[in-house]
Amino acid sequence: MHMMVLGVSLAFMALIAVTFILVARARPPRSDANRSEARRRQLIWAMVIFGVVVSVASLARWPHAVSAAPTEVVNVTGTQWYWEIDRTEVPQGVPVLFSAKTTDVTHGFGVVDEKGRILFQAQVIPGYENKVEYNFDEPGIYKVICLEFCGVAHHEMVNEFIVAAR
């Protein structure tokens, strides 16, 4: 996902940048008001259709869905500046529900795999029970980091848990 996001972004960014450069360098002047207005309409329609398709595709499955009766539950508590996790091990291949709370300010519960990639995250808002679910494909040691600025040792809020093979 991460590299695809980067690739798609860079492609569209380059497209816009190159269009600007080509137009800025083009000679001699040429203008055809009718043609450019027709093009503008095409561009708007293309952007609308593309947007509807991508929006529907990316929201069809609600990204924050959690099971009604989860079997694996982990309670996580953030405090300036450490994470408490009530289990050291969760199973691979089944949905695991993380219920995150904070005792002070807002923290960001972020889970990182062994390759260093962020897999998912949740804001941990004071006064709320913040629930996020994830199904781990791979066994291994996963790191928990803080992804919301919470003060002077924000970057040191690190902990870990194990995903055990089934």
Partner: peptide, 20 residues
């Protein structure tokens, strides 16, 4: 150009891994 990565990060599925 800057709106491209902003819009992409504005998708919930992407935001889950790119936010912050």
């Amino acid at each position: 150009v800057g709106t491209v990565p902003a819009i992409i990060d504005g998708m919930i599925v992407v935001n889950k891994v790119m936010h912050n």
